[in-house]
Amino acid sequence: MEKWTEEISPQHSLLDLKLKEVWRYKDLLLMFVKRDFVTFYKQTILGPLWFFVQPLLTSLMFLIIFGRIANISTGGVPQIVFYLSGVTLWNYFAECLNKTATVFKDNASIFGKVYFPRLVMPLSIVVSNLIRFGIQFFLFLLIWAWYYWQGSNLQPNTTLLLIPYLLLLMAVLALGLGMIISSLTTKYKDLIFLLTFGVQLLMYATPIIYPLSEIQNSSPTIAMAIKINPLSAIVETFRYAFTGSGSFSWVLLGYSSAVAFFVLAIGAIIFNKVEKSFMDTV
């Protein structure tokens, strides 16, 4: 019997994710991360400082529109801290989702010419956005510390230990959703149109610009709907950890985790199925 190292054939197991192969290509993953990071600020003067601009301006705008004009309460938390915490976390999710959702389309030229485990690409997106998040998170920490030092009403607590897990959940959700969308859009591009404003709408369904407690008081039914959104518990917990205001519930966080990992599993399976044939349909 001859020993073949590989067989190329039309049939493949759905669950065979080739994670071992992905591990073998870990250097490639890091190279993609480096590429994303380095090319972001090539030929700029401020360089990585640009990572600060977007969340700061967005928070400032929220502060003016929702804080000053619409007068939405932030539950006693200094407004800039409140908005920046939401925006920083949300940015991570939105960036990951937007990029993974178009991963096949954006990389068709590379995918069409060289083989490597396709999973490397979405994973690299999640990791490179993690660096971006790290920088923006640092900015948030600075501002948060400033207010804390000024004696604002901020009560950091032990929930802070959950922050890495919250990030993981965000990544898992974005990756899972992104892979589902990217897989479905290789053949039928309809979903792409939904994506851009879908992400925007989803932000309003997540307690980014308002605290969940505020909605709870005014309309319990809407609050219920917002709680169904698995992102809500993550954002709420994140904010609770730093400010002590808002709510934290193991049940809701458990629910978010379950949804996130379920979505990831579905995403991985569909992605695995589509990556094999997408070059013919994209």
Binding site: K3, W4, T5, E6, F111, V114, Y115
Partner: peptide, 19 residues
Amino acid sequence: SKTTLPTTGSIKVKGRIAS
């Protein structure tokens, strides 16, 4: 080079392929 799949049939390979 595994950038697309065959419709039928198979290829058996010994060793790493680079394209």
